[in-house]
């Protein structure tokens, strides 16, 4: 059973998945950020691999990607950083045990070598992949098998414009969870979240095989609660990156931010 499935077996409500950019804010702060997220209550981590042309991302995440690239972040570098991230702190590792999915765009992965990428991800202890620009056709004809061979979950996105039939198809191809984009937008857009409720109800009624996590536009306790009402949890990205960018202390900023999301008033 995959680490992600184990998580959902243990806890299937109010799952908090937080996005961070590898190599941001400092080249070598990747593990520090991940550790701070785990310690502050994140159930799952979506680790973004920076790319020069991130089409699905809004300005905040793109800016963090640009800084990470300027810092010198690469996929090779990332796998070096992640080498011992599953090892317990007592044995000299980072001691991160929450599931981690890598999010990124296809081009840098193709240059690294797709199979080599999957093998290295599996070897360091990555649990799954989110590749927004890998479409169904390519997944089914070429890449899906490689991903499966290396025991990685693969998460497709669905949006309010996706038909029920297509949602079922994307659900059947996904494993781990399904990523429900709350509105048709790039990340970090503060569209009215309430309008998403009907769509999330529709998802809940489809009897999907995967848990559903909602992303895009989740930025505070209110939107987190709203997202969790009909689904298994939510993904926060831009709002967290913004919090990191306003602070010089990763641990403090992370603790404070996650508390603001999770603490009952």
């Amino acid at each position: 059973m995959s680490r992600i499935q184990e998580l959902f077996n243990r806890k299937n409500k109010k799952i908090l998945n937080v996005y961070c950019t590898a190599g941001y804010p400092e080249l070598d702060s990747t593990l520090e950020v991940m550790k701070a997220l785990q310690d502050s209550g994140a159930d799952l981590i979506e680790l973004g691999m920076p790319y020069s042309d991130p089409l699905a991302d809004g300005p905040i995440i793109q800016e963090s990607s640009s800084i990470a690239l300027k810092n010198g972040m690469t996929i090779s570098r990332l796998f070096k950083q992640l080498k011992d991230f599953r090892t317990d702190a007592a044995a000299g590792g980072a001691g991160i045990h929450v599931p981690v999915v890598l999010m990124g765009y296809l081009n840098p992965i193709l240059q690294y070598g797709f199979e080599r990428f999957c093998a290295d991800a599996e070897a360091v202890g990555i649990d799954g992949l989110i590749l927004p620009d890998l479409p169904i056709y390519e997944f089914e004809t070429e890449y899906g098998e490689i991903i499966k061979k290396h025991n990685l979950d693969f998460v497709f996105l669905v949006t309010p414009e996706t038909s029920a039939e297509r949602i079922k198809k994307l659900d059947s191809l996904s494993s781990g969870f399904l990523y429900a984009v709350s509105s048709s937008s790039t990340t970090g857009k503060n569209k009215e979240f309430a309008s998403a409720e009907q769509y999330l109800q529709k998802l809940a009624s489809l009897n999907l095989k995967n848990p559903v996590l909602v992303g895009f536009g989740i930025r505070d306790r209110e939107t987190f609660e709203a997202a969790c009402k009909h689904t298994n949890g939510a993904i926060i990205g831009s709002a967290y990156i913004k919090a990191l960018s306003n602070s010089s202390n990763v641990q403090e900023a992370t603790k404070e931010f996650l508390e603001s999301i999770l603490t009952e008033e």
Partner: peptide
């Protein structure tokens, strides 16, 4: 350029070794 993906299609793309355009 090398084969890569830019703006939604696979083609020849000028990029770094790490696949940054």
């Amino acid at each position: 350029g090398k084969p890569g993906i830019l703006h939604g299609s696979k083609s020849l793309v000028m990029q770094t070794e790490d696949g940054q355009v």
